[in-house]
Amino acid sequence: MRNFIRQRERAISLKLGKKLVIYIPLFWLLLFFLVPFLIVTKISLSQITYGRPPYLPMFEWSKDNLLTIKLYFGNFFLLFSDSLYINAYLNSLKIAALSTFFTLLIGYPMAYFIARADEKIRNILLLLVILPFWSSFLLRVYAWIGLLKNNGIINNILLNMGIIDSPIKMLNTDFALYIGIVYSYLPFMILPLYANLVRLDEKLLEAARDLGAKPLALFFTIILPLSMPGIIAGSMLVFIPAIGEYIIPSLLGGSDSLMIGRILWDEFSANRDWPVASALAVAMLTIIILPLILFKNAQKKEVAIDE
């Protein structure tokens, strides 16, 4: 009997412990991650007003005690009718896609090179990739201002060498924008690719070579398909944050290079139009969801390969 009671007590305390382990983080994320999105969605369907908060309530008790729900789709109509927003969307997509492509183009050979390097050098190379990632994002973007501006380092060098007569305008152009994104997000591409490529079994390559695969065939038939999860993971890690990027377009991009992240910020802080900013956020989320699912699947595959 005593044994039985002790057993019960233990079972109860174990259950309580398990519940705490699960529900503390779950509750936190519900409150500070999921609920905020619901609020954003709600406000995106509200009408702007002058006051605090700067939007009209969605739920209201009318005089005859009826709950009225006012859904205002005007913010979304605005997004589709004003070419400013549509252009910003398309532009963001284009810039994010192209930057992802360029990042992959540089990142893949680098990841491959590191993964195939000697073990001693490999760790140092990896450290060299991670190091910029750990130091300030903002300051690394800032560094490019000094390099790219009209009397900046690159123009000065080119002028001194006599290659150009007058400075090339690079800062505040799309070129600077692309440089900034590729530069900032390169480690995010290299690291998942490296993690994938380093596990690539050398024997598979030997087997393919043994069966007559030439270098190019080897790459396209063995290495590339096997590294697909890494490519997808890396691409998503670049593409998705690049869509909503705010710092890089506002520091390096031109005034005409419109990206949604920047417009959202402006609507929010300069125009104080919270409903439109929320509608922009909701719309931005809808284009992110598809890549998000792709990313999740790639992650799952990686885990499956690991096991």
């Binding site: 983080p25 779950l26 994320l29 519900l30 409150l31 500070f32 991650f33 999921l34 609920v35 905020p36 999105f37 609020i39 954003v40 406000i43 998503m236 890690l237 998705i240 944050p241 869509i243 909503g244 990027e245 705010y246 992240g261 959202l264 910020w265 929010f268 919270w274 900013a277 929320s278 956020a281 931005m284 989320l285 992110i288 998000l292 990313f295 999740k296 992650q299």
Partner: peptide, 21 residues
């Protein structure tokens, strides 16, 4: 899902939604 989403959530969305919360 909620654990992996913040990894790639654009900062502007996270910031805006938390402020509204």
């Amino acid at each position: 899902g909620m654990v992996s989403a913040p990894l790639i959530m654009p900062d502007v969305i996270t910031g805006l939604s938390l402020l509204l919360l």
